[in-house]
């Protein structure tokens, strides 16, 4: 498989002026300003293959957006190297721009005063998209993202969801090979979120677009990404597939069992490697280590306390997995 995005030891350090507290501090600041160095991204390395969708996640301020800005070429890294679609982003920014699409959930790349359709047509000229190709891409986007009802509305009057859909359409008119999405579903309602996820999945499947996605919405990840890269305090703390991450970190599973009659439990459970979470009437929830016990083991052990009517097993949620990583 060809590598589409390659990052090697990318680092970005910022100088930040600090303000001293109080009146005297503010006046001193006029003459000598104190500053500190902040390392936003620290020696980050990864490869993304053509056609992959990678979730790039981490808490606020972890360095996600900074990484993306370096990979688009807007920010020059303090050290390290990167290649995207064959270009070095920061020194070949304009050439790279032709090959990538970028969507920032928090801001628009459309022209505020222009109706959506005119913004899109202007972008046709910006990227020099042949008329035929533009029509095809435009029609596809307009249909899947349901742009029809607000094409003639000035961008500033669009709702957040509409604007987001407009921005997505704008990002792919020129057939980009790589799509960077920085929180594409932030602030949207469920319908709009689903709509956008389906659209991205379609784009990846049909056009083989490589997607790097940052998000706080883990449902985006579950729907779209097989692989996630977790960054925290500028470091990569995990890079791998979602299922393996779950195996590695979430070692405990939970079983919920409904008995015919409320059972009387004893400390035998503990010695067999189960942990009672709670019991309400006939319903009992126990946790167990997946490395020590299998689900049938647990079920067999529980039948000794009464006949069982129903059972279910819960895998840990991605939220709890991610939280676990951040804390580590």
């Amino acid at each position: 498989m060809t590598t589409q995005i390659q990052a090697r030891d990318l680092s970005k350090r910022f100088e930040r002026h600090t303000r001293r507290a109080g009146m005297v501090g503010a006046m001193r600041g006029l003459f000598d300003r104190a500053s500190e160095t902040v390392t936003a991204v620290d020696a980050v390395s990864f490869d993304v293959a053509r056609g992959e969708i990678v979730g790039y996640i981490g808490p606020n301020g972890a360095g996600k957006s900074t990484t993306i800005k370096m990979l688009t070429g807007v920010l020059t890294p303090s050290s390290g190297e990167a290649t995207v679609a064959g270009f070095t982003p920061w020194s070949e920014r304009r050439k790279l721009a032709q090959q990538i699409g970028v969507v920032f959930g928090q801001r628009t790349q459309l022209w505020w005063d222009l109706p959506l359709i005119e913004s899109l047509e202007l972008l046709q000229h910006v990227y020099r998209v042949p008329e035929q190709r533009f029509r095809e891409n435009f029609t596809m986007a307009a249909e899947l993202l349901e742009l029809g009802s607000f094409l003639n509305t000035p961008v500033r009057q669009l709702s957040l969801g509409q604007r987001m859909r407009g921005d997505l359409a704008a990002a792919l008119l020129h057939d980009p090979q790589v799509l960077y999405l920085d929180e594409p579903t932030i602030g949207l309602d469920l319908v709009a979120k689903t709509n956008i996820r389906e659209f991205l999945a379609h784009l990846n499947r049909e056009a083989g677009v490589t997607i790097l996605l940052t998000t706080h919405d883990l449902a985006d990840i579950e729907r779209l990404c097989k692989r996630i890269i977790v960054i925290d305090h500028g470091h990569i703390v995990h890079d791998g597939d979602l299922a393996r991450l779950r195996d590695k970190i979430a070692t405990e599973r939970t079983m919920t069992v409904d008995f015919d009659d409320p059972p009387t439990l004893d400390d035998q459970l503990e010695t067999r490697g189960m942990r009672l979470l709670d019991q309400t009437g006939q319903r009992v929830r126990v946790a167990f280590e997946r490395s020590r016990l299998t689900a049938p083991d647990v079920l067999t052990a529980l039948t000794e306390y009464g006949s069982i009517r129903d059972m279910s097993i819960e895998e840990p949620s991605i939220e709890s997995i991610i939280q676990h990583i951040y804390k580590a």
């Binding site: 688009t72 807007v74 920014r93 721009a97 790349q109």
Partner: peptide
């Protein structure tokens, strides 16, 4: 950022 990301 969005303006610098355009090929113009």
């Amino acid at each position: 950022v969005s303006e610098l990301l355009k090929p113009f």
